[in-house]
Every structure is written in structure tokens, then in C-alpha cells.
């Protein structure tokens, strides 16, 4: 009996280790601790109509997301970014790749100087079907953006279905975003 008492620390520790292992497995599947849920999930995108980043090109508005007259709508991404944001630069190649695969990404340049935003897109390439400026950050607040970059998956009905806080990593893309786009596009 006394001997069994000396086993208690080992048993407790193994329990803890097992649970760590489960957590690591969950993280591997994309459920990271910094994955923040959003109250906006399954709600329609907030009303907004933002001016274009580049004069003369289309801006981004709530009515562009979801079904419009004549077509049943398309799954789209809304990506908040800025020229001053370093993680946005690391995310940029992934957006370019997504755009190359035909994914419709709408960009919102957050609290940025128009010239800076334009210069970055001219230098690194433009993955966006349309890109607008949110100089006041008002629309970002309505979406519930914590900080750039942040990306939202919008379904064919114009509802927010997923929120990515921080840059999209290749794992996020493989494990969450691409499967979700495929599922929603069915």
C-alpha cells in the first residue's frame, strides 16, 4: 500500500503528458490556442461600401459579396491588410497562390496611405479581384478585426463562415481554408 503512494506522481504526470499529446494533435489539425472564434460567424457581412485603393478601379462593398442579380453568388475571401504590416508581407505569396487557383479575394487596405498600398501591390503583385481602402478603420471594426492581417471566408449567401486571425500559414490553408472553400462551393 505504501509503495503505491510512490506511484502517484508518475500517474499524475502521465495523465498530464497524455493530455499535452491530445492538445498537440488538436493544434496539428489547426485548432491553435490563438484561433479566436468570432461572434460574426454565420452572420451576414456588415454593411459597408469602401472606395477603391486605385482611382478608377472597383472598390469593395457588402453588396459585392454574396448573391447578386443574375448569379447565385460565389465563395469569397475578404482580406484586411496594410503596407505597414510585416506579417501581411509573409502572407502575401499565399494570397497570390490562392488567386492563381481562381479564388476570389477582396482586399481591404486598413489604415494606410493610398500611395503606400498601391506601391506595395505594384511591387509584389496584386492578388485581389478588387481592393478598397478603409482609412478610418470603421469597416474593420464592424467585422471585428483585431489587427491586420485578418481574413474572412464569405459563403455564397454573403455570410461570414470563418475568420483567420493573423497571417494564413500553409497549414491553415491546407487544413481549414481550402476544405471550407470547397465545401461551401458545392
Amino acid at each position: 500500500m505504501r509503495r503505491l503512494m510512490f506511484l502517484i506522481p508518475l500517474v499524475l504526470f502521465l495523465g498530464l503528458a497524455g493530455w499535452f499529446a491530445v492538445r498537440l494533435k488538436q493544434i496539428d489539425r489547426g485548432d491553435t490556442p490563438d484561433h479566436l472564434p468570432s461572434v460574426m460567424i454565420d452572420k451576414p457581412v456588415p454593411a459597408f461600401d469602401l472606395p477603391p485603393l486605385v482611382e478608377g478601379q472597383p472598390g469593395v462593398a457588402a453588396k459585392d459579396l454574396g448573391p447578386s442579380a443574375g448569379e447565385s453568388g460565389k465563395v469569397r475571401l475578404v482580406n484586411f491588410w496594410a503596407s505597414w504590416c510585416a506579417p501581411c508581407r509573409s502572407e502575401h505569396p499565399i494570397l497570390m497562390r490562392l488567386a492563381g487557383q481562381g479564388v476570389d479575394i477582396r482586399g481591404i487596405d486598413y489604415k494606410d496611405k493610398a500611395a503606400d498600398g498601391q506601391a506595395i501591390l505594384a511591387r509584389d503583385g496584386n492578388p485581389y479581384a478588387a481592393v478598397a481602402r478603409d482609412e478610418s478603420g470603421r469597416t474593420a471594426i464592424d467585422f471585428g478585426v483585431y489587427g491586420v492581417p485578418e481574413t474572412y471566408v464569405i459563403d455564397r449567401q454573403g455570410r461570414i463562415r470563418y475568420r483567420q486571425v493573423g497571417p494564413i500559414t500553409p497549414q491553415d490553408l491546407q487544413n481549414r481554408i481550402l476544405p471550407l472553400i470547397n465545401e461551401l462551393s458545392k
Binding site: 509503495r3 508518475l10 504526470f13 502521465l14 503528458a17 499535452f20 498537440l24 493544434i27 496539428d28
Partner: peptide, 23 residues
């Protein structure tokens, strides 16, 4: 996470071994 698995394995071997020896 891949590194995490490795460190967890290290932790299990070191502490688990130590505590087993203790028991």
C-alpha cells in the same frame, strides 16, 4: 507542433523515467 511532439517525448522519457525510478 512537430517540435512540440519531440519535446513532449523528451519530457515523458526524462520525467516519466525519473518518476518511475522514484516509484
Amino acid at each position: 507542433p512537430a517540435r512540440g511532439v519531440f519535446i513532449l517525448a523528451l519530457l515523458v522519457v526524462a520525467t516519466g523515467g525519473g518518476l518511475l525510478l522514484y516509484a
